[in-house]
């Protein structure tokens, strides 16, 4: 009877039952992995190879590369979030709105064209990586932040105005202070794209190291164990950042109920 519930749409299950389902799926994936990689022909490397790959990566300075990637991510994120916030917060000003909307539309620009022009003005690989990431992150951040500003109900604006707030005070209280928790959420939502982009940028411009360089080198030598090990590391680091930001939002903003 209980098992029947597991297959019924919209059924609310107890925590133990949800954990059981999760365990079954993890065990299933692991079993499939072991089973599907035990023969001669195989698409994925077996767990042993992945472990070996991870071990060799560790010995070759995996942690340094992770730190390098995180450093790049942090630097580009800080620059782009500050720039994006200024653009998005000023978007309610009619004269400046076209700037924000145009920048948001530019997210459809291809990466290659931009890197060409950046290469003309920037020679250092690390600086180049930071700027490529900053430009593209900003375009996504601006798009999401514009959505946050647009979704503020008219009632909240009217409420502030009825409390004798001038228009700049409305902007400060309702948009900037009142939506600070949303900034962290925008960061979280866009992080998956950013993290993926970061690895790509690092693999295009290999001079400054990072996880992207490791994956490119492993790819060149068709070392599947290392490639999968790296994919798992990148996935786990990404999930770790997501968890950190979510915890930070809950800790800092008690009033947040997204």
């Amino acid at each position: 009877m209980e098992l029947k519930k597991w297959l019924r749409p919209f059924e609310e299950l107890k925590l133990e039952q949800r954990l059981s389902i999760l365990t079954i799926w993890i065990a299933g994936v692991l079993f499939y992995w072991f089973f599907a990689t035990s023969g001669e022909k195989r698409l994925f490397p077996p767990p042993g190879k992945v472990w070996e790959g991870l071990y060799s990566l560790y010995n070759e300075g995996l942690m340094v590369h992770i730190a390098s990637s995180l450093g790049l991510c942090l630097k580009a994120t800080l620059i782009s979030i500050v720039f994006s916030l200024i653009i998005a917060y000023l978007s309610p000003v009619p004269f400046l709105r076209p700037v924000a909307v145009t920048l948001s539309r530019l997210r459809y620009l291809p990466l290659t064209g931009i890197t060409f022009y950046l290469a003309v003005v920037v020679s250092d690989a690390r600086t180049m990586q930071v700027w490529v990431l900053t430009i593209f992150m900003s375009l996504y951040f601006i798009t999401s932040l514009l959505g946050v500003v647009k979704d503020i109900p008219q009632e909240e604006i009217d409420h502030a105005r009825s409390l004798k707030c001038n228009r700049w005070e409305v902007l400060w209280e309702v948009v900037i202070k009142g939506r600070m928790d949303y900034v962290l959420d925008v960061l979280r939502q866009n992080l998956a794209i950013i993290w993926m982009m970061l690895v790509t940028v690092e693999s295009i411009l290999v001079g400054a190291g990072g996880l992207g360089v490791l994956i490119k080198n492993s790819d060149r030598f068709m070392n599947h164990g290392r490639i999968v090990a790296l994919q798992l590391v990148i996935l786990l680091v990404g999930l770790g950042i997501d968890l950190f930001l979510n915890t930070l939002r809950r800790m800092l903003f008690r009033y947040s109920k997204i």
């Binding site: 109900p153 009632e155 409420h159 009825s162 409390l163 004798k164 707030c165 600070m180």
Partner: peptide
């Protein structure tokens, strides 16, 4: 003028922060 008269909407909007 704006702010001379208090306004309460049906959702009883407050500053969320």
């Amino acid at each position: 003028r704006e702010g001379d008269v208090g306004f309460v909407d049906q959702k009883y909007t407050l500053f969320r922060h």
